[in-house]
Design a protein around this nucleic acid. Structure first.
Lengths: 174, 174
DNA sequence: TCTAGAATTGAACATTCGTTCAAGTTAGTG
DNA sequence: CACTAACTTGAACGAATGTTCAATTCTAGA
């Protein structure tokens, strides 16, 4: 069954919001900016979402779902560690604005209780993936922190992460 | 010599901006919000700063300076690794809002070229500190990424980092 | 086919936004 | 002391904000 009218509009607004966060950051997410990007009247955002925070929450939920989906796919790859490393490196090179947007939402969730569940999706998804490689909980936490820090620092420093060094570092930590 | 009038006002506005970012996030930084928090007329912000971005840049520069100062002090401690670990853990517990604000500015710099130098201050400061512990550049990068990721994930998950595990992890990586 | 409820949309609201301008005050220099 | 440049401040501007409301269109189910 195809999604109803409302559902389709909601998704269009969420995607438009993500596009705006990529381009201008969270501060750029306003009713008019989002609806203009989606080619919809300004009142559409207020009808479908309780607030801007609600819209941001849906955007984070969507982006988080995408990321977790990718993590699951990586988990079924023949060489998961290598797959994760190359995925992260390629993600950085080709989707830098999207990555910035996701981290912005990710961090925004730290001060917005209603968004925490979605933010923890990535966290637990990554934890679950790494947990299949070792039983050492401490090592899992270290690897997960390392990965998030690597991406964050790559975004700030502008230097793309080296997939080989990344893979070697993960193997060392396991 | 004491700072001039203008300099003192500028600093008051920068501190007010940081306080607002702690409370509401970067989106809350407007001329009127900042000046109200500083007890100054609304036009004061426009006079002393070219734009909101300029004000945010000064705020990041200030916070970055503070952090680097702390890193230098840690470098001279008898047991630097332990000092860094306890400092990070305590910073998280006692200064969570400040930490969120700093990371928000940190990430904001990723899409704002003029802010990149300030953002890289923390990055290079941390790198310099860790570099005194090992000559292995790869290990330095791994430790730095691990630390940033640990703080970020702690902010999102809400779980305070354990200083002992943190110290043990750093020692393992060296 | 008819209809009730969901969805859409344009007009309009009070606020807040960044910015400009001119008048005023202050502090340092000759 | 006088003077100049830096600083301060209140008023006001057009533009953009979130939100409400009523009128309209659409669509799924009886």
């Amino acid at each position: 069954m195809s999604p109803g009218r409302g559902e389709r509009t909601r998704r269009a607004l969420v995607l438009a919001a993500l596009a705006i966060i990529e381009r201008e950051g969270i501060c750029g997410v306003t009713h008019r900016n989002v609806t203009r990007a989606a080619g919809l009247p300004a009142t559409s955002a207020a009808y479908h979402f309780d607030s801007i925070n609600d819209l941001l929450e849906q955007a984070l939920m969507w982006a988080d779902g995408q990321a977790v989906e990718a993590l699951v796919a990586i988990g079924t790859a023949p060489n998961p560690v290598a797959a994760l490393s190359t995925w992260l490196a390629r993600d950085f090179r080709q989707e830098r604005p999207r990555l910035i947007a996701e981290y912005e939402l990710y961090l925004y969730a730290a001060r917005t209780p209603s968004m925490l569940p979605s933010a923890n999706g990535w966290l637990t998804g990554l934890d679950a993936l790494v947990s299949t490689w070792t039983a050492d909980r401490r090592a899992v936490r270290t690897v997960c922190a390392y990965i998030d820090g690597l991406l964050l620092q790559a975004l700030v420093s502008g230097e793309a992460p080296d997939p080989e060094e990344l893979e070697a570092a993960i193997r060392d930590l396991l």
